[in-house]
Amino acid sequence: MSTYSIKDLEQLSGIKAHTLRIWEQRYNLLSPKRTDTNIRYYDDADLKLILNVALLNDNGFKISKIASMDEREIREEVMKLTERSLTHDDQIHALTLCMIEMDEERFDKILSSNILKLGFEQTMLNIIYPFMSKIGVLWQTGAINPAQEHFISNLVRQKLIVAIDGQLTNGGGKKFLLFLPEGELHEIAILFATYLIKSKGHKVIYLGQSTPNDDLLAVYKLHQPEYLMTVVTTSPSAEYVQEYINALAERFKDAKILISGYQVIGQDLKLPSNVEQLNYIRDVKDLLEEIERIPQEK
């Protein structure tokens, strides 16, 4: 069982810690436990309750009304709400609950429903990708455990692979070589980038997780792609990212290198002329649209 601080509850639910404490005192909504050293903490049941409360409160339920409902009534209202609501934040809340409960059936139902309503690309851009970015940060800060992050990542990965397999290219367009640095395993971003790139008719050479440098160079020499793309979430660590970027730029001088990830965005990096930083997945779409505006070489 995981334990959470009140700051963790705030990050996961979006409800300010000050508000949570008021709800504790006024409505007995939460009953924090204490460690042997008298430090307050919360468990999975508390987190699930607060996520449900946040969802209902955001949709017009008064906190006094929610506090009077039992666990079954709260869950029933949440289920009704997430099945009829198209609000992106509501869907992200619902997916966060699925992650905490490790409820694969419910997760798949929510995802499939949104894909039917919005289409795969819009579901990824507006719901899944913001959700994955959120839990990626929470995993980095220890607010959720690795098992929860892996559970969700694998479910999303399965959906992406199926969607990628459904994209056919006609052999035209540009060549993109997508890979993760050695030791890097978080591939959701480059899988979605693969989907976007292939959907625009470009060719993707996908090397995936933890690509050795020698293998990367060998594939590059064989295919001569115009673009290389990578995402740095955990490896290399922040103090080595600049060195890694410089080495890529020097090794692949004739390619445009696209780089993103937790260890890149918001860092004070000096990018070589052939390296471009992508801050959001939408930047990939913007890049592809820019390529489309440039007449393809015969």
Rank of each mutant, 00 (worst) to 15 (best):
Leu207Lys: 07
Glu121Cys: 06
Val284Asp: 00
Glu239Lys: 13
Glu104Val: 12
Leu95Glu: 04
Arg282Thr: 15
Trp23His: 07
Leu180Pro: 12
Ile128Tyr: 02
Ala255Gln: 12
Gln277Asp: 04
Phe179Pro: 01
Ser113Phe: 05
Leu216Asn: 00
Ala17Val: 06
Tyr4Ala: 01
Ala189Asp: 09
Ser112Lys: 12
Ala67Ser: 14
Ala238Gly: 04
Glu149Ala: 02
Asn57Val: 04
Glu276Gln: 14
Asp108Lys: 14
Pro181Val: 10
Asp254Arg: 06
Ser133Trp: 08
Lys270Glu: 12
Met79Pro: 01
Lys253Ile: 09
Thr96Arg: 13
Ala238Ser: 12
Leu49Asn: 08
Gln167Phe: 01
Tyr244Gln: 00
Leu217Met: 12
Lys7Met: 06
His223Ala: 15
Ile152His: 01
Arg84Asn: 09
Leu180Lys: 11
Asp89Ala: 13
Leu185Met: 15
Tyr227Pro: 01
Leu217Glu: 14
Ile144Val: 04
Leu271Arg: 02
Met229Pro: 00
Ala193Phe: 03
Gln122Trp: 07
Gln122His: 12
Glu73Met: 05
Val53Pro: 05
Arg21Phe: 01
Leu160Glu: 03
Ala218Phe: 01
Met229Tyr: 02
Ile127Thr: 07
Pro236Glu: 09
Gly261Phe: 03
Gly136Thr: 04
Lys174Pro: 08
Leu160Cys: 09
Tyr220Ile: 01
Glu101Trp: 03
Leu97Ala: 10
Glu289Thr: 08
Asn126Trp: 09
Glu71Tyr: 05
Leu138Val: 03
Ile110Pro: 08
Lys109His: 12
Arg72Lys: 14
Asp214Glu: 14
Ser2Phe: 02
His93Thr: 04
Met229Lys: 01
Gly166Cys: 06
Glu10Ser: 15
Ile15Met: 13
Ala163Met: 13
Leu271Pro: 00
Lys198Glu: 15
Glu24Leu: 00
Ala193Gly: 10
Lys80His: 14
Gly136Asp: 03
Asp8Leu: 01
Met1Phe: 11
Lys48Glu: 14
Gln158Pro: 03
Ser133Ala: 05
Leu56Gln: 04
Phe120Ser: 05
Asn145Arg: 15
Leu155Pro: 01
